[in-house]
Write a protein that binds this DNA or RNA. Structure first.
Length: 485
RNA sequence: GGCGACAUAGCCAAGUGGUAAGGCAGAGGACUGCAAAUCCUCCAUUCCCCGGUUCAAAUCCGGGUGUCGCCUCCA
C-alpha cells in the first residue's frame, strides 16, 4: 500500500510499526455543537481507511479523541448557563448519533481531555524539566526555539512563520510562536490542580498525551484535516518528541476541505451545514457515497445538485444489488444452459482493480468506478438469465454478491444487518407489516387489471402509488416495487 | 508579504511519460401495452495559456493567467 505522507510530501509504501497491526489516531471534534459536513469528511474518510486496513487483514487500533475542555465550550456553556462538562457530554452523545447515521464505526478508544489530566500534567512537567517549556504567572508555554525540527511538518521555517504571524505578541512569551501547554484558571472556569497552579490544558497537549498513552511512541498513522497541519500537528510533534526523545507518528494523513460555493466551510465563517440538517434531506448513504466520490486530499464542493446527482448514481448501484438478490430468490430451473459463465474471471479482475485503487493512497473515487463496473456486469448477467437461474449461474451470482459485500465492507455505504445483508432502504423486507400487506394486495389487483389489458386502471394505480412514494416497475421478470430514493 | 495546492467534456471526477476511467445530464437503439428499470451505441483529436525537454506529455521543466487554502480558533 502506498500512502501520501504530509511529513515527506510524497507517497510512501506503508509498513506498519508491528507486522499485521496498524495503530491510528485521528483528531476528533471539540464538542460544543453538532457536527457539520466539514467534520464529517475526516470521520468518513478515516473510517474507510480503518475499514480497508481491516479488509487487508490488519488488526487495527483506532483512537479518536474528544476535546471536552476548551474556550469555546466554556463560552457556550456560559451562554446557556450549563456546566461545561455536561454540555460537552451532550454533544458527544449527539456526535455518536450523527456519526452512526453515516455508518462510521466507533473507534476502539474515544479518550477525553477531562479524563487524562494526570497524563497531561506529567507530560508538561517533563517538558519543563527538559528545558522545552517555561512557567509564566501560572501559564506554561512550549518554547519553539528549543525544538530544532519545528516547522518540518508544515514545511516552514520559524522565520517564515514569524514574518507572517498575525498573532498578537504576548510579551510574556519568549517567542511569539510559543504556545500554551497550560492555561492558568480564570474565575468560574473549570480547573485542575497542578504544581504550577490551578488551570487547564492548552489545546495541543491533549492529543500528544492521549495518543502516546494509547498507542505508544512511533505509532503508525496520525490523521486530521488539512487545517490542523499548522499549528496543531506541528505542535503535537514538537511536544511529543521533546518529551519522549522518540519519533512521534510515522505517517501523517490530511484530508482536504469541504467548500460551499467554492469557499471553505467552517464554524467560524458561519457557512456550515450540520450533518443532521443534511440527513433530513438526503439519505445517509448518499452523503457518504458523495464524500467518497472525490479523492480525500482534493477539495470537495457541496451543494444540493451535486448530492442529487450522486444520489442518482448510487441508485444504479442499489438497483443492481436488488436485481441480484431477486434473481437469487427465484427458484432454480433445471436447465443446463449457463448464461454468465464469462463473469467469474471478470469478478476477479474487478476485485483486483478495487484493491489496486485503494492501495494507491485510498483512491476511493477509482474504487467507486469499479463498483459501477460491477453493477453493470451483474445487470447484464441478470438480464440474460430471464426468469430463473441455472445452478451454475446461481453460483456466479453468489460470487458477485460476495464482491458487492466486500466492496461495501470497505466503503461502508450501506448499513449491514446481523445476517450480513445490506440495507438498501427501499428494498421490500421479508417480514410483512400491514402497509406492505396492503401494498402487495393493491399490486396484485393491478396485475389482474393488466392481464385484462385494462391499462386505465393499471396506470391509475401506478400513478397513485407514485404519489405516495412507491415506484412500480413492470419488468420481464415480473412487477417490482420500491420506495422512492 | 511568506508558504502551498489545484486548473481534465454541460456538471462532478480518476488518471504523473505511451496516446483521455467512472458517474450525472443529453442523443439514438433493444426490451415494454405505456412508463420505469436494465442492456447496447454515441457524447473531450484533447486535458487553462505560451514556450521547452522527449521518438512520445494531461502527465516532466520554465513563464503566464485563474481559483482555493495555510500563516489566528477551525476537520
Amino acid at each position: 500500500m502506498e500512502l501520501y505522507n504530509t511529513l515527506t510530501r510524497r507517497k510512501e509504501t506503508f509498513s506498519p510499526r508491528e507486522p499485521g497491526k496498524v495503530s491510528m489516531y485521528v483528531c476528533g471534534p471539540t464538542t460544543y455543537n453538532y457536527i457539520h459536513l466539514g467534520n464529517a469528511r475526516p470521520l468518513i474518510f478515516f473510517d474507510t481507511v480503518r475499514r480497508y486496513f481491516a479488509y487487508r487483514g490488519y488488526l487495527v487500533d483506532y483512537v479518536q479523541n474528544f476535546t471536552d475542555i476548551d474556550d469555546k465550550i466554556i463560552n457556550r456553556a456560559g451562554e446557556e448557563g450549563e456546566d461545561p462538562l455536561a454540555l460537552a457530554q451532550k454533544y458527544i452523545n449527539e456526535y455518536f448519533r450523527d456519526a452512526g447515521a453515516l455508518n462510521v464505526r466507533r473507534a476502539d478508544t474515544h479518550p477525553r481531555v477531562s479524563g487524562h489530566m494526570p497524563e497531561i500534567i506529567e507530560m508538561i512537567d517533563t517538558l519543563i524539566k527538559n528545558g522545552n517549556a517555561y512557567v509564566v504567572e501560572g501559564d506554561v508555554y512550549f518554547e519553539v526555539r528549543s525544538f530544532s525540527a519545528y516547522g518540518r511538518l508544515s514545511g516552514r521555517s520559524l522565520d517564515d512563520l514569524r514574518a507572517g504571524a498575525r498573532v498578537e505578541v504576548d510579551s510574556r512569551k519568549r517567542d511569539p510562536l510559543d504556545f500554551a501547554l497550560w492555561k492558568a484558571a480564570k474565575p468560574g472556569e473549570p480547573s485542575w490542580e497542578s504544581s504550577w497552579g490551578p488551570g487547564r490544558p492548552g489545546w495541543h497537549i491533549e492529543c500528544s498525551a492521549m495518543s502516546l498513552k494509547y498507542l505508544g511512541e512511533g505509532f503508525d498513522i496520525h490523521g486530521g484535516g488539512f487545517d490542523l497541519i499548522f499549528p496543531h500537528h506541528e505542535n503535537e510533534i514538537a511536544q511529543s518528541e521533546a518529551a519522549t526523545g522518540k519519533p512521534f507518528a510515522r505517517y501523517w494523513l490530511h484530508n482536504g476541505f469541504i467548500t460551499v460555493n467554492e469557499e471553505k466551510m467552517s464554524k467560524s465563517l458561519g457557512n456550515f451545514f450540520l450533518v443532521r440538517d443534511i440527513l433530513a434531506r438526503f439519505p445517509p448513504e448518499t452523503v457518504r457515497f458523495y464524500l467518497l466520490s472525490t479523492h480525500y486530499r482534493s477539495p470537495l464542493d457541496f451543494d444540493d445538485q451535486k448530492l442529487e446527482s450522486a444520489g442518482r448514481g448510487l441508485e444504479r448501484v442499489k438497483t443492481s444489488i436488488r436485481l441480484l438478490a431477486e434473481a437469487l430468490a427465484r427458484p432454480e430451473d433445471g436447465r443446463a444452459s449457463v448464461e454468465c459463465k464469462d463473469l467469474p474471471p471478470v469478478l476477479d479482475e474487478l476485485r483486483d482493480s478495487f484493491e489496486k485503487a485503494m492501495d494507491d493512497d485510498f483512491n476511493t473515487a477509482l474504487a467507486i468506478a469499479v463498483l459501477f463496473d460491477l453493477a453493470r456486469e451483474v445487470n447484464t448477467c441478470v438480464q440474460r438469465l430471464g426468469v430463473a437461474p441455472a445452478p451454475a449461474d446461481r453460483e456466479v451470482l453468489l460470487k458477485a454478491e460476495v464482491l458487492f459485500k466486500a466492496f461495501n465492507e470497505v466503503l461502508g455505504i450501506f448499513k449491514v444487518d446481523r445476517n450480513g445483508k445490506m440495507s438498501l432502504d427501499g428494498m421490500p423486507s421479508p417480514g410483512l407489516d400491514l402497509a406492505d400487506g396492503l401494498l402487495e394486495l393493491i399490486i396484485g389487483l393491478r396485475q389482474e387489471a393488466r392481464s385484462r389489458k385494462d391499462w386505465a386502471v393499471a396506470d391509475r394505480i401506478r400513478e397513485g402509488l407514485k404519489g405516495l412514494g412507491i415506484i412500480i416497475e413492470d419488468t420481464p421478470q415480473g412487477v417490482r416495487w420500491k420506495k422512492q430514493g
